[in-house]
């Protein structure tokens, strides 16, 4: 243990104080420089952890019947549809026409793209408007109360 008293006696008192000030201050600053990143690292990030293979969409009860919800899946949006009779289905929410984000239209009972009125049925098939291809389907798994969406392999 180094305490100022026990260490060697300096020839000039003025210089000693200056050097020890630097040394002590340096140690404190160094400790801060090391501890700050570590403490910041340990603070859990605001956004929950991203898993690209599957995402937790939320509680089953959060999805009303006859509704659609956009869920973020990695970098892409996925639309989770709960049909009027309670079935859950998930499709890529990226319109196959010009990559707008699609939504669920309760009044038509279809997946609808606001940009050019493209429509997909609840199996993701393009049924009207400009979309050239069906929406990619995702797998929905319900574990207890939790709804998970995962990529179809």
């Amino acid at each position: 243990m180094i305490t100022p008293e026990n260490t060697a006696q300096a020839p000039e008192p003025g210089k000693r104080d200056f050097l020890k000030l630097f040394l002590g201050g340096g140690i404190v600053a160094w400790l801060i420089a090391v501890c700050y990143p570590i403490l910041a690292y340990l603070k859990p990030p605001v956004q929950s952890e991203v898993e690209v293979h599957s995402v937790k969409a939320g509680k089953l009860s959060a999805f009303e019947k006859d509704s659609g919800t956009i869920v973020r899946f990695g970098n892409k949006p996925v639309i989770l549809i709960r049909t009027a009779n309670g079935n859950l289905r998930a499709f890529s929410a990226t319109c196959t026409h010009l990559a707008c984000t699609v939504q669920y239209r309760k009044d038509f009972g279809v997946i609808w793209c606001a940009c050019h009125n493209g429509k997909y049925d609840l199996n993701g098939r393009n049924i009207s408007g400009p979309p050239p291809r069906p929406l990619d389907e995702y797998r929905v798994v319900v574990q207890g109360e939790e709804v998970f969406i995962s990529q179809k392999s």
Binding site: L19, F22, L23, G25, G26, I27, A29, W30, A33
Partner: peptide, 8 residues
């Protein structure tokens, strides 16, 4: 900081 510490 590290340099100051090292020098001192």
């Amino acid at each position: 900081i590290i340099t100051i510490l090292a020098v001192s």
